[in-house]
């Protein structure tokens, strides 16, 4: 819960930053308009604003599918991690084709798992200083599939080693994340995890089967 609150705060902070920028842009535009300096406005618009807007739009484009997730806590955790990753100049994107309105798993548990998986993915990418993070959510006939794929180091240990309770690629006092997430998944009868290491990609697929009568 604490982790989640923290994510919301970060998210909110991003929004405030954006509002602040937006305000500044409007003010600067107004300056040219009051002066009736069309030429200056043109130059300023094309050299400054248009450039940044493509930046924003580009970022937004890669997040736009988030609006298809109708479960706010899930949307928030993914949004905040993605924005954090993009802020760190990492190549991160989210995609979903269908609207996702309900998932047959306790939301708090799913938020915890996603938080851990995404933190690990971002940490790995930061240490590599390159690579990409792909997140996808797919609704199928009897289940929802969540995919998290990140570039990973060449000499990544085997999956069993990564999953050990005290294992961490960083030193001391860390490394409980993945083993906690794993335990949550293994206790949910309708949730199945697949982990693959292939071609320098670390891929996690979470399959959540719909519960009958829901």
């Amino acid at each position: 819960m604490e982790r989640y609150t923290q994510d919301i705060e970060n998210h909110y902070f991003e929004l405030r930053k954006f509002r602040h920028d937006y305000q500044n842009i409007l003010t600067s535009l107004e300056h040219y308009i009051i002066q009736e300096d069309i030429h200056g406005l043109k130059t300023y618009f094309y050299s400054n604003i248009k450039k940044h807007s493509s930046d924003i739009l580009n970022k937004e484009y890669r997040l736009k599918d988030l609006s298809k997730i109708k479960i706010s806590p899930i949307k928030s955790i993914i949004a905040s991690k993605l924005i954090y990753a993009q802020d760190k100049e990492l190549n991160a994107s989210f995609e979903a084709l269908d609207t996702i309105g309900d998932i047959s798993m306790d939301t708090v548990l799913l938020v915890r798992i996603l938080g851990i998986f995404l933190d690990n993915a971002i940490e790995e990418l930061l240490s590599l200083e390159k690579g990409e993070l792909l997140i996808g959510m797919i609704k199928n006939a009897d289940h929802v599939l969540i995919i998290i794929q990140n570039t990973c180091r060449k000499d990544i240990p085997n999956i069993q080693t990564l999953q050990k309770p005290n294992f961490s690629t960083k030193t001391s006092g860390r490394g409980l994340g993945l083993s906690n997430a794993l335990e949550i998944i293994r206790l949910c009868p309708n949730v199945f995890l697949e982990t693959i290491i292939e071609d320098r990609a670390f891929l996690q697929k979470i399959i959540i089967y719909d519960k009958e009568g829901e």
Binding site: I159, Q160, I185, C188, P189, T195, I197, E198
Partner: peptide, 16 residues
């Protein structure tokens, strides 16, 4: 940890 759930370990993957 729950009945009827099995984890398959392959050379480079784990599948529940």
């Amino acid at each position: 940890l729950v009945p009827h759930k099995v984890i398959l370990h392959t050379f480079n993957s784990q599948i529940e």
